[in-house]
């Protein structure tokens, strides 16, 4: 090239003619086809979740509320009023069947409240420690161990509740010291292990929102003579409150849906009680139990399973939706 020439010729750019097609019309090319295939494959994968959800919702509705010729749904055989108000749940007692979901909801409530009372405060406390207090070294030990806790199979938790918590902690303390009667299966043990299970979830979600609080707020707090506790409790946590509440709701909906641990630790006798030391049955453990028996497909007890699953689905769906909504609002507030 004539780099030394005093007048660099600008038009040289157009001097090299790029190959041009004669028409602007789109023509077939393998590249284009390949691009389209990729797009379709990716779309199909994304659609799987939509189709699955739709199918599940359809099955739940089909067995519980949808009438078709030759098919009577659960609520065609049992009235909604009885379902929601009756105090007994005995679908498998032939001749003495009662379909009142209250005992199951009660059981779920017991384990969920116990789990929440244990898992939420502990999870939030760990989140505050991790985000505000912990040195990098402490974090590097604590974070992975929390994740490990979250990775333990739930069936293991169930057996810990049944074979460790109940006989070695709950019975000696509550029964031995306080003289209360404790069932071998009880809601308390299940609630405690589910609480341990949701704790890492709360910790990790809450820690994310706590760390998202701008550090300028921390500095402003310290500059006013605040201690670390003042800054954490009075500035950071209130600033991240909506995110924390959202993480609480997600964790609670996980606790409601938790199955194996409560099926093992809490037992399988639906009782309308608020005493956590009794054997109970949650909605989820009922669903598991009925699958183990020889329930004929299409029978009313088989269909009751879908009615319970529908209620469960509605509860967790609502909670997830509410927490998503809260999280969205939170994000808008801080951008």
């Amino acid at each position: 090239m004539n780099a030394g020439s005093p007048t660099p010729a600008v038009p040289t750019l157009t001097a090299v003619d790029a190959p041009r097609s004669s028409s602007l019309k789109r023509r077939f090319s393998w590249n284009g086809a390949y691009e389209k295939c990729i797009r379709i494959v990716l779309l199909c994968c994304a659609l799987v979740s939509v189709i699955t959800t739709a199918a599940i919702v359809f099955v739940l509705l089909y067995e519980s509320v949808l009438w078709f010729p030759g098919h009577t749904p659960f609520f065609g055989k049992v009235s909604l009023i009885e379902f929601l108000t009756a105090s007994q749940w005995t679908p498998q007692f032939a001749g003495n069947q009662h379909f009142g979901i209250m005992p199951l909801i009660c059981g779920t409530l017991l384990t969920t409240v116990t789990a929440g009372a244990i898992g939420l405060p502990m999870g939030l406390a760990s989140a505050i420690y991790l985000s505000e207090y912990a040195s990098p070294q402490a974090r590097s030990v604590l974070k992975p161990s929390l994740e490990l806790l979250a990775g333990i199979p739930t069936v293991v938790y169930g057996y810990i509740g049944l074979f460790f918590l109940t006989p070695m902690l709950i019975k000696p303390v509550l029964s031995g010291v306080f003289g209360l009667s404790v069932d071998g299966f009880n809601a308390l043990s299940g609630g405690i292990v589910v609480g341990m299970m949701i704790m890492p979830m709360v910790a990790s979600l809450s820690e994310d929102v706590l760390r998202a609080v701008p550090s300028s707020l921390r500095e402003a707090g310290y500059a006013l003579g605040a201690t670390k506790y003042d800054v954490s409790a009075k500035i950071i946590v209130p600033s991240a409150l909506s995110g924390i509440i959202a993480s609480f709701l997600l964790a609670l909906s996980r606790a409601i849906g938790e199955t194996m641990a409560v099926a093992i630790a809490c037992g399988a006798r639906p009782q309308l009680t608020l005493n956590p030391l009794r054997q109970i049955q949650t909605m989820t453990s009922f669903i598991v139990n009925i699958m183990q028996g020889d329930t004929p497909v299409g029978s009313i007890e088989y269909q009751s399973l879908y009615a319970v699953a529908l209620v469960l689905f509605l509860i967790t769906l609502t909670m997830n939706y509410v927490s998503q909504w809260i999280l969205r609002r939170y994000r808008e507030a801080y951008q």
Binding site: L217, E219, A220, L224, G225, A226, T227, I235
Partner: peptide, 23 residues
Amino acid sequence: MVFQKSTPFPKSIFDNIAFGPRI
């Protein structure tokens, strides 16, 4: 200290001013 970026706490105006005395 006053910073470059204003850093109001997500509280009421009153509570912002009262933060220092309160702690």
